[in-house]
Amino acid sequence: MKNVAEMRPGEQGIISGFTDDQLSVKLMEMGCLPGSAIRFNFTAAFGDPVCISVSGYELSLRLEEAATISIIN
């Protein structure tokens, strides 16, 4: 399944699940909920970290953290 780290700037998707239990609760608290729409905005230089929009918030994640969010689009 595709994950957020593989998205391109401007791409959108729906969060389908998480692959890291410990991180998933933190991500959910910040508004990344299964079923929410997620948009990949841009990355910093060297492609890491990344900026996403979800539930009306702009979040920054490290690439390895983004890779734990599975999406469908």
Binding site: Q22, K26, L27, P49, C51, Y57, E58, L59, S60, L61
Partner: peptide, 11 residues
């Protein structure tokens, strides 16, 4: 303690 970023970029 695990280092993570998961941070808001506020308006």
């Amino acid at each position: 303690e695990r280092s993570f970023l998961i941070m808001e970029l506020p308006t």
